[in-house]
Amino acid sequence: MRKADALVVGAGPDPESVLVVRGLTKSFGALRVLDGVDLDVGQGKTLCLLGPSGSGKSTLLRCLNHLERPDSGEVLLRGERIGSRLDARGQPRPLRERELARQRVRFGMVFQHFNLWPHLTALGNVMEAPVHVQGRDRHEARAEAVALLSQMGLADKRDEYPSRLSGGQRQRVAIARALATRPDVLLFDEPTSSLDPELVGEVLGVMRGLADAGRTMVVVTHEMGFAREAADEVVFMDAGRVVERAAPDDFFTRPTEARTRQFLQRLG
């Protein structure tokens, strides 16, 4: 019903979408890395972004939370413009870094190289932003962080510093950190690419659990098994454009674009 209403009003994006991206472009010098990308991620959906190296997946993810400012296009998170505000004439005005910082907390980001803060324990890493950015009550934030670490299977590691943890454990702490700010959407940039093969499973398992629990997620990955099983939608990018988007079954068994078939064949 609500979808129909939106159509009547003529408002573009699906109102059920948590994250809407329209016409995103980004160049580094002469290199056009994003060339008009559109995305819609519905509430509780998992979108997997695939594509060859250099196709702009990381840049797209970093433009979503404006770690990198896109050149044009818009990102809407639950209807709120990210990174800019419309002025009286309807022109986008870039927000200042401080205002942007407040918006960024609404994305929970998980990096390829974990990027845990080395001076803080596992628990410290998870509590840090809730307490010092969001100003939440310390006891409450601590209790929530303890629960998140337990959920990640790290109850006994909470007082360890990152240097004392394995790659898989570090990435699970990083996921707990990303959940602790109660974000609207989780962004994963190749979360298992820098892990030893035997540690990949434990991280994918946790992510699978999050997808099943109805978290809204955008996942850049080369793990086709994960994309096939956990994704609601697969988006294939090449040279800064979305080449194909489909449900995982269709994507892997009946790709429509030649470029997609070529990509999948090369993976074997």
Binding site: R104, F107, M109, F111, N115, L116, W117, E128, R177
Partner: peptide, 9 residues
């Protein structure tokens, strides 16, 4: 980047 992503500026 990790700091900025979690709202530090």
């Amino acid at each position: 980047d990790a700091g900025r992503a979690f709202g530090y500026a």
